[in-house]
Design a protein around this nucleic acid. Structure first.
Lengths: 246, 246
DNA sequence: TATGGTTGTCTATATCAATAGACATTTAGG
DNA sequence: CCTAAATGTCTATTGATATAGACAACCATA
C-alpha cells in the first residue's frame, strides 16, 4: 500500500546496513518480491537505497544469518522464509486456537516457574491482596519449530496450585485450566505496545539485535468476571500481527 | 514489571549510544525515574550499561535533542517530558474521544488529499468494485502540540464527496462524517503491527531515526455494516499504547 | 559454448563509534 | 565558603562502518 520510497539515514546511530536489512526484511514479509521469489540484485538495491554495493551485501549477509534469504553465486539472492502470523484478539482469545492452521506444529514450553508475592501492580490487576502468593510461569511458544512468543504469566496461587505441572505436560494454558477444573475463561483486556528487543528476547526468540517486538499485556477472567490470569507476552514484530475484531 | 537488566549489544549495526538512548527513553516513559525527576548520573548509567561515560553522554545528547531531557552542569540530567498516551480500541473507537482528557489540546491537520481508483486490496476491504473512485486523506493528529499519529485514510468517493473540506474545517473524522449526514459509525476490525519509522514518519512525527512506530490498520462501517472508511495510522511506539477491552 | 547477469573476494581509504584519562566548571548543601 | 557530586571539554587511540574500484567465480540460457 505505502511504497516507502524513502531513503536511508546516515549518522543516526543505526548503521546503514542494518537499516537496509530491516527494510528488505519488511519488504519480504510484505510480499513485495513474491513474483520472482528473489530479492532484487545487489547492484539494483544499492542504487535504490543510494549506497555502495558492499553496504547492501552486509545487509543481505545479516538476513542470510537470520535464515531469511540465501545468496547463490550466479543466480541471485533467494527468499528462504516469509511469514507473518496473525493473532486475533477477541473476548475468547486463546493462543493455540488463534494460530489455527497457520502453522502445522504448535508447541508450548515451560521455561521456568516460581511462587512469589504479588506486586502492587499485579495485585490490583488480579484483584487479590497485595503480597498474596502468585504462581509465575515463564513460557515459550513455538509454531513450526520457530519461537513466536515469550510470555510471563501470573495466576493466583490459592486457586491454581499445580498449574506449573499442568502446563508443562500439556503445553497449553487452556488445557491446563481445564485440568484444574476451569472449563472456560474470557479475555477482558489487552494492552499493546512495541519496543526494541532486549537481550533475553534476542536469545529466547532467536532474533537479531535491533529487532522490534510487540508486547501484549493481557488479563483473563473466568465466566464470573473474576481475574484468573495476567500475562505479558512478547512477539517478534516482523513475524506477527494482531487483529482486533469488534 | 520487567526490570530489563539486560546488557547492551555490540557490533550489531545499532550504535551503543542509540541502544542506551532507547532504553533510557523507555525507562522514562515507564516512570522508573519518577521519584527524583532526574535520570541517574552519567557515571552510574555508564556502570549500569557497562560502557564508557562518553557513550552515555552521546545517548543523553540524543535525548536532549528530542527534548526529553535537559542536562544542567552541576545538577544532573532533568526529565523534561514524559508521556505515553493510551488509545482504547473498541467497537466505538474514535481518535479524539479516545485521548479524552489525556491531552488538553487536540488537533487534526489535513496534509494532503486526492482522488484515485481503489487498489485490489482496498476495494476488497471497502467492498467496492476494483478501480472505483476513492478519496484519500493524509492527516496528522496532534495532542498538546505534539504529533501523535500520521494517518492515510480512504473513503468511497461516491458516498463521501466533500469530506476533504469537512475534515479540513473540523479536524475530526467524526465531525466530518456528521457534516455529511452520517451520525454514527463502528470500528469492525483493527490490525496492529510494529515497524521501524521510515523517513516520512521521522519528519511528520518529529522522531529520531531508529524509532519504533505502531501501525494500526482499521476498518469502519456504518451502523448497517457497510464499510465507509479504511485507515492506516502510524503512532510513535514510545508515546502510545493501545488498549483492547473485550 | 559463449555471453550477460549475478554473487564472491580482495585492497585501499576516509569517517564514525567507543574507550580512556585528565581536568575544568557548575551546583547544592553542610 | 569549602567540598562533593554532577556535567562540560579536550586529546589520543582503536575498531567498526562505508565507499571505491577491480576482477574472479558461477549460473542460466540463447
Amino acid at each position: 500500500m505505502d511504497t516507502g520510497q524513502t531513503n536511508v539515514h546516515r549518522q543516526n546511530g543505526v548503521a546503514l546496513w542494518r537499516q537496509i536489512a530491516d527494510r528488505i526484511r519488511a519488504s519480504i514479509a510484505n510480499g513485495d518480491y513474491d513474483a520472482t521469489g528473489k530479492v532484487p540484485p545487489e547492484f539494483t538495491l544499492a542504487a535504490q537505497f543510494g549506497v555502495n554495493r558492499h553496504t547492501v551485501r552486509s545487509a543481505l549477509a545479516a538476513l542470510a544469518q537470520e535464515g531469511i534469504v540465501r545468496s547463490v553465486q550466479g543466480r541471485g539472492t533467494l527468499i528462504e522464509r516469509k511469514e507473518r502470523l496473525n493473532f486475533p484478539i477477541t473476548r475468547r482469545t486463546r493462543f493455540s486456537e488463534g494460530i489455527g492452521d497457520q502453522a502445522r506444529e504448535k508447541e508450548g514450553l515451560l521455561l521456568h516457574s516460581a511462587r512469589e508475592p504479588a506486586s502492587v501492580d499485579l495485585s490490583t490487576r488480579l484483584r487479590i491482596p497485595e503480597g498474596a502468593q502468585v504462581i509465575r510461569l515463564e513460557t515459550l511458544r513455538k509454531a513450526d519449530r520457530r519461537p513466536v512468543s515469550r510470555s510471563t504469566t501470573w495466576f493466583p496461587a490459592d486457586r491454581f496450585g499445580g498449574i506449573e505441572e499442568a502446563y508443562s505436560k500439556s503445553g497449553s494454558i487452556t488445557v491446563a485450566f481445564r485440568m484444574l477444573g476451569l472449563s472456560d475463561y474470557l479475555r477482558v483486556s489487552t494492552e499493546v505496545t512495541a519496543t526494541h528487543a532486549d537481550g533475553a528476547d534476542l536469545a529466547d526468540l532467536q532474533l537479531s539485535p535491533g529487532a522490534i517486538i510487540l508486547v501484549a499485556r493481557a488479563l483473563n477472567t473466568d465466566t464470573e468476571g473474576v481475574p484468573i490470569q495476567y500475562a505479558v507476552s512478547r512477539f517478534p514484530a516482523d513475524m506477527v500481527q494482531f487483529t482486533i475484531e469488534n
